[in-house]
């Protein structure tokens, strides 16, 4: 039985259908990703799953409890890392964890017993009495993650856990999320970073305009939707080259801005030809989730 089971879920705001009939089943112990551009409906899906808003139609069950009907009871076993940090600025690091434990009905002694391990997990052992505004962005994120673990949840929802962090801070979060996965926790995360999804998720679905347009493991999605090799080509004469040679030398061409993407199953002939084109620069790489994502959601800019 999946820990989180969503069927036929719909939610509209005014005339805009933000979640347009989706099915999601998240099994115990897996890291499940909701990948999509801004406005795809990822955050609304999480809010619905937590019972913070009621669906227009469809069913949600969390730990076999109906949501939103029994959402409060279900949240006893859930941790949440919200998109925007909402730590308590008037409390220290330790006091934030204590206060959050109380919301779960934990006795202060119990929370106090858990705090050293949480601080260690967050790498904040020496910051227990620091004020929140004295923490860096990465530290705040790690504390928010530690706070989500105060009730020792079985399932953790993370809404864009690394958005706005620098690469070092992002890697520290990823490392901790992998630790949680290794401990057997179930993770549901939203992201628009392909790298994050590719590194962490066992399975993911790609959401666009409220719908799920693909589901599977990162590797399966790449194999299913994209040729294995990509050449990114730029240069002044790239358009002419694409028409004259490129189209014949690869399976599929996509142009985004100045960049031409050539997708191919066998790049040898293409590479050979490009070596002789002094006006073009190119990069040869294996296909990634990003290519799948761009193919399925389109390359236009979204606001």
């Amino acid at each position: 039985m999946p820990l989180l089971n969503i069927k036929g879920l719909r939610k509209s705001y005014g005339a805009l259908e933000v979640v347009a009939g989706i099915d999601i089943a998240v099994n115990a112990g897996e890291c499940f990703g909701l990948l999509g551009p801004n406005g795809a409906g990822k955050t609304t899906t999480l809010r619905l799953a937590l019972g913070l808003t009621a669906p227009d139609s469809g069913t949600i069950s969390l730990f076999d409890l109906p949501v939103p009907g029994k959402a409060r009871e279900a949240r006893i076993r859930v941790g949440v890392v919200p998109q925007m940090d909402n730590l308590d600025p008037d409390f220290t690091v330790r006091e934030n964890l204590m206060a959050y434990g109380r919301y779960f009905g934990l006795k202060d002694a119990e929370t106090a017993r858990r705090i050293p391990a949480l601080l260690e997990f967050a790498g904040l052992e020496h910051r227990a009495d620091a004020r929140i505004d004295a923490l860096s962005g990465g530290m705040k994120r790690r504390l928010t993650l530690a706070r989500a673990l105060v009730n020792d949840p079985d399932l953790i929802f993370l809404d864009e856990p690394t958005t706005g962090l620098d690469p070092q801070a992002r890697h520290m979060i990823w490392q901790r999320l992998r630790e949680l996965i290794n401990q057997g926790k179930t993770l549901v995360l939203t992201t628009h970073f392909m790298e994050e999804a590719e590194r962490l998720c066992d399975r993911l679905c790609i959401m666009d305009r409220g719908k799920i347009i693909a589901t599977g493991s990162p590797r399966a999605l790449i194999e299913q939707h994209i040729e294995p090799e990509v050449l990114e080509v730029v240069g002044e004469e790239v358009d002419a080259w694409a028409e004259q040679y490129g189209r014949g030398l690869c399976q599929r061409l996509e142009k985004t801005g100045e960049m031409l993407f050539c997708y191919t199953r066998d790049s040898r002939a293409l590479l050979e030809h490009l070596k002789s084109q002094s006006s073009l620069r190119y990069l040869h790489r294996p296909a990634s989730l990003e290519d799948v994502f761009l193919k399925l959601t389109g390359k236009e800019l979204r606001d």
């Binding site: 409060r72 909402n86 779960f104 009730n151």
Partner: peptide
């Protein structure tokens, strides 16, 4: 401003 209520609503409180 601080979204303290939002944080609390993620816990088992209504």
């Amino acid at each position: 401003v601080q979204k303290t209520w939002e944080a609390i609503l993620n816990a088992p409180l209504t």
